[in-house]
Design a protein around this nucleic acid. Structure first.
Lengths: 160, 160
DNA sequence: CATTTCATTCAATATTTTCCGAATGAAACG
DNA sequence: CGTTTCATTCGGAAAATATTGAATGAAATG
């Protein structure tokens, strides 16, 4: 094992990304894995991550899985080497896009349906029908804003 | 008690905002309270919220407290009435600004300090010093992007 | 100023989420 | 084709969060 304990720089990166993960209410293990991969010049395999982070196989694997799912970590096949290695994706646009695609876009898309159901639930003969229509319009406006915001957030982070 | 069970429209709004809260990893009770206030034409007091939501005093109070703290709910003093009443804030810009101010801005501001510490942790005589400097620059670039993004997100939702 | 009405707090409970590590099974190897 | 090496899964432990409801204390009331 070349490394089995993170250095000063690596430790600080891990702490920094654990904090960043917390901002998005993501588990510590995700911040740890990304932070260590970010702070290490070569790709690491699962056992190296476990050894350097001092955490479990299951949790570390789950973190890698989630990070790959949003596109924040990539598999690296080193020629002639059995173990899978992993490397941090550094393009902020990709990171943001992956996160948004997974965590918020589905809700925004389903939102359209839910707004439709809400519209159907208004009884025109009800005394509050007009109030409810106003609220419905408000939600529709919000939905439009958010829908327009998503691509802009992805755009702004381009090429960094 | 004028109402003691939410109507169809109210129930759907509650469900919708509970889902929206989940997107931000916020507790169900926060979505419930905001949803009900949003869907009701007049301000409600704590006991009405408890009765209509079927949830506890403590949890409902905490939800109101948090929502007021980010500016998503306002206190309403009705003349000649003892109980405090509450009304939903409908301006999306205010909602977004309140949330960001509370949940992300502090981290972005502290981030500057943490980046400084990270910079100090690089040992120039280390073989990896150059790699680490590159990573540090990457973090600095990200920090700038995020810092610039925050005011833009607030701006975009203006006047709705 | 005693009493009632309310908002707020808080310790206990319940629930959800995260983490762990042994077990499973797939893929490479000889 | 048996053996080894690895990634992945999964049930249960542990930790973190959310919820409850009774207790507290502040403010209004008469």
């Amino acid at each position: 094992m070349v490394h089995s304990q993170p250095g000063e720089f690596q430790s600080r990166c891990i702490t920094l990304f654990v904090r960043a993960a917390a901002v998005f209410s993501l588990p510590r293990s995700i911040g740890q894995v990304y932070g260590l991969l970010f702070a290490t010049p070569r790709p690491l395999n699962l056992d190296e991550l476990i050894a350097m982070l001092g955490s479990s196989r299951g949790g570390t694997h789950d973190a890698i899985k989630w990070l790959m799912h949003i596109g924040a970590v990539e598999r690296v096949h080193l020629p002639g080497v059995r173990k899978e290695h992993y490397r941090a994706e550094l393009n902020l646009r990709k990171l943001a896009a992956g996160y948004l695609r997974l965590k918020v876009e589905p809700h925004v898309e389903n939102g359209a349906d839910h707004i439709g159901e809400l519209a159907d639930s208004i009884d025109p003969s009800d005394a509050e029908a007009e109030f409810q229509s106003q609220r419905l319009d408000k939600i529709r406006a919000w939905h439009r804003v958010v829908s327009g915001l998503l691509p802009m957030v992805k755009q702004i982070a381009e090429d960094r």
